[in-house]
Design a protein around this nucleic acid. Structure first.
Lengths: 158, 158
DNA sequence: TGGATATATGTAGTTAACTACGTAGTTTTG
DNA sequence: CAAAACTACGTAGTTAACTACATATATCCA
């Protein structure tokens, strides 16, 4: 047992990050194992545009929970891959509207079975006494109610 | 509800990362609120050297679960801050042994109460139906038994 | 109705992790 | 006991996120 794992709740951010990276790395290998040219980091944008086919840059950023500069660089990469394309919004000239190309839609069709397998695999290893996905949702709810910072501030005076 | 949150288990890596960053950011603000010059990223090394006072670069890297180049850059920063110091191992000249300086130990003494408050706050918002820390530990156990990749591979032929 | 404010996008630079590779010292082995 | 393999550390370069700032368009209000 290493010291960090033994530190209990204090290292929770580090452990969340470590688990995330572990899953992401295997995710990349799974796409490869299926012979599909798809990177895990593309998932949020592609998945979002599949279900909401025409969105602006800021709308996508908000959907996927990234900042807009991060989103822009993702979008650039996906446009270079010809998986998405954009056009100006006629009504609001500031906006650039993004959508999947035919190639992008074909890729989604190709990855659908992999997403199904992944979902099944994740369901398998997160089906433990304390369900990870539910725990995440519950903690986010708690934090929306009162943030980590606010809670810590309150405890100063106790 | 955004598309990513609605995607269920598929976006679990993204959501783990997002939660981690949310906690880390608030962590930084909490240290500041207490008027302590301490960055969340220092935690793994400082905490490890507090409990295991003399370790080599690779030993620290392994303890905190980072690669050794990442660890080296963290160590450089902490040496610059004069919170840790190093010396060659007399027995094995390849090794560099790290330890906390007096300043480093004093800083630990100073942050101890903050860590206590943080632990209490984290315990509070993770005390939900599905306990987040326990869920992480359980999932890591599952993955040690059989990785995400292996599980996905098995499902190809089903 | 035009000046102030807000919103949408974009660019530049930073950061904190990573991989790949190189060198030096230690251990193993034919 | 010397060559090969391994281990420890370090550097260079990459990546994927971020913040800060800039510009253009739209909206609001005095």
């Amino acid at each position: 047992m290493n010291v960090i794992d033994a530190s209990g709740l204090l290292a929770i951010a580090t452990r969340l990050q470590r688990l995330s990276e572990r899953l992401r790395k295997d995710g990349a290998l799974i796409y490869k194992a299926y012979g599909i040219d798809f990177e895990p980091k593309w998932f949020p944008v592609i998945y979002t545009l599949y279900y909401k086919p025409l969105l602006s840059v800021v709308e996508i950023a908000s959907e996927i929970g990234y900042t807009h500069p991060s989103t822009i660089s993702l979008l650039k990469e996906l446009e270079k891959q010809r998986l998405i394309r954009s056009r100006r919004d006629k009504v609001d000239e500031r906006k650039r509207l993004l959508q999947l190309t035919e190639k992008g839609k074909a890729l989604v069709a190709q990855v659908q079975p992999v997403w199904k397998v992944m979902t099944a695999a994740i369901a398998e290893f997160t089906d433990t006494r304390n369900n990870l996905m539910k725990a995440i949702i519950e903690v986010e709810e708690q934090l929306d109610r009162q943030s980590f910072l606010q809670r810590a501030r309150e405890k100063i005076y106790q």
